[in-house]
């Protein structure tokens, strides 16, 4: 399936949970926030929230800023 993450299209084998996608991409789930199709995914739902073909995900974190 194709999933758009931070504007880039990525291919994954099957429907996966948000947590599995984060793990596949080596992203530390405690230091980030995830938005799925413009809705925030609470950290508590990373395991249960399933991502399907065509979903759009934003993964953000804190960086330096004024």
């Amino acid at each position: 399936m194709d999933v758009k993450i931070n504007g880039e299209t990525r291919k994954f084998d099957a429907p996966l949970s948000v947590l599995e996608i984060l793990q596949a991409m080596n992203l530390p789930s405690q230091k980030i926030a995830v938005e799925l199709n413009l809705e925030i995914v609470p950290k508590s739902a990373y395991d249960s929230q399933i991502v399907v073909q065509g979903d759009q995900i934003e993964i953000v974190h804190f960086i330096g800023g004024g």
Binding site: K31, V60, H61, F62, I63
Partner: peptide, 17 residues
């Protein structure tokens, strides 16, 4: 702090935190 997309190509890049 600012909120920005994580660097997907280099997830090991230094993080502010």
């Amino acid at each position: 702090v600012a909120v920005r997309r994580v660097n997907l190509s280099d997830p090991s890049a230094p993080m502010l935190v």
